[in-house]
Each structure stands twice: as C-alpha cells, then as structure tokens.
Amino acid sequence: MELRSRIRELFQKGEIGSLIGYGRGTLPLSARPIFITEGGVDQLIFDITCGVNLAKYLLRKKPIAGQKVGIICKGCDGRAIIQYLTEGQLNREDVYIIGISCPGMIDPNRVREKVRGRVVTNYQMNGEEITLSGDGFQLTLPREDLLSRSCLRCRYPSPPIYDTFIGSPKDRVEIQDEYRSVAEIESLPAAERWNYFQSEFGRCIRCYACRNSCPFCYCDVCFVDQTNPQWFGKGVELTDTIIFHLVRALHTAGRCVDCGSCERACPMGIKLTLLSKRMEREVRERFDYIPGLSVEETPPMAAYREDDPQEFIQ
C-alpha cells in the first residue's frame, strides 16, 4: 500500500517523529484516529470511512524532540490547518502535512437510516454506487445516499497546502448548488421553517459531540460552560438548545470548512451543517471569503476594510 510505504519512508528520513492518521475501527464501516510512531505504520488505512477531522488533534499533539508531527490530510483537514494558521493556533514548522485526495466520506447516520437495524459487515464501491452487505441482505445504493452531505457539496477534495502528497492532488470540483439545502429551507414559509428547526434541534441531547468533534470549537471554556455569568439554561429546553446551536454557528462563521464532522458525530442525526452552511454563504457573499484556502489572507472576522458591507450603520 502506497500510504504505508510513503509514511514509513517519512519516519525513516526523519521528516516526522509521530503521525496522526486513521486506523481500522472495531465496527464494520468504521475507522478511528490513531497516533503512531514508526512501529505503528502497518495500522494505517485510508478509505471512505475516515471521516473524523484530524486537525483538532494537532492542538493536543506537540512536536517531540524537535521532530514534526505528521498528519494525514484530506481537503477539509488541510483547510482546517490553514485556518488554524491564520488564527495563530499552530506553528507551520511543527506540522508535516501529508496530503491525500478524498473520495468523500460516508455518514454513519445516513447508513443507519438506510439499513434500518440490519448490520452491515462489508461494503464495496463500484464507481458511483456503494454496495452494503450483511447477514442475509445486500443493498446497492448511489453514493449520494450514503456520503456525508458535506462531502457531496465539497469543492476541495485535496488540501490546498501540503508537504508531500500521496497519490495525486485532485482539482477543485465545480459544484453548482452547494447551498441547495439552505435555499430549500429558506423558501419555506416562516411557520414551516420553525417547525423544521423544532423537529431537528428538539432532538438535541446536549452531549456536545458536535462541538467536541468540530476543529473550530477549541475555546478553553465554551460559552455554554461559563458559570459566572451562566448565559442560558443547560437543559434540553428548546430555547436553550437552539441558542447553543445558533451561537456555535455564529462563532464558527467565516471559519467553518464544512468538514461535516459535527453532523456525522451527532447520535440524533440532526442536520447541523444547515446552520453552518448558511453562515458560510453569508460570509462568502459579504466578504468574498472562503475559509481555509490561504494562509496569507486575514479572516474577515479579524479584519476591517473600508469597503466592508456595513449598511447597519445608518
């Protein structure tokens, strides 16, 4: 496998001292983040199950004895790293970015929705179709039915910056209707929109799997955990859960790279990226900014330009 031989080479040449990558999980269709040194190279895998955004682990992993931390980067992991660099969270020289082209990642919630209680023990990709099989069943579905919604509208399958690349980088993908899910909701009358948000966010159990798997939720103390003052209720009353999700969407606006980790992590299958996508469009339209593409560009929330739209100042 090219992945393993290339990584072994990087260890041997001393380019990296440790690596954040993916290993096989214990469930069918699951992978897990792994943290290895040279001895662990044979555990490495990369396929459509490697959805977890690894960039966040870089904030925990520091170089040991001056040796860089290597990290396997899909497009969204790489973009999260760029965003970290613009936010002053990482030193570029501490990290060794190993780019890899992303085929799109499956969303376990969408798989569960399709197989309804049956257990998948194997899967096979045939072009645009994925065949899931298990005890007494076989289900062939178009990949759109199983992939993360974020992956289906992703323009950047490869990281914009890297130190080495496994395989060859994929070009930017032209996506016409990446804000379709947002537009669909916006086209509804207010009462229906509210019903929709109630049924989605009313399921939230405040486990914070979304927040904790989000590369950009790295605040030392999240606003929901502040106690003096405590800004709002910590239970599962709808107003409280919705405030949590709205403020999180605002706080990650202009930063979120739509990796979809939040949505895949949610045990209740809440369509969380609807909010973040809405904010992404807002930032793009108003500030002509797409997060995680350039280290040089200052994020709009950290910059002031005279021609910023500011019609709210009368």
């Binding site: 897990r32 943290f35 405040r206 486990c207 914070y208 799997a209 798997s213 992590a265």
Partner: peptide, 13 residues
Amino acid sequence: AERCLSCALCTYL
C-alpha cells in the same frame, strides 16, 4: 484520552 473527544455522547446514551 489521546482519541477521546471528551463529549458526553456515551454518558447520555
């Protein structure tokens, strides 16, 4: 702990 996200998904389910 290297891998754990420290969320409460396991606890709440």
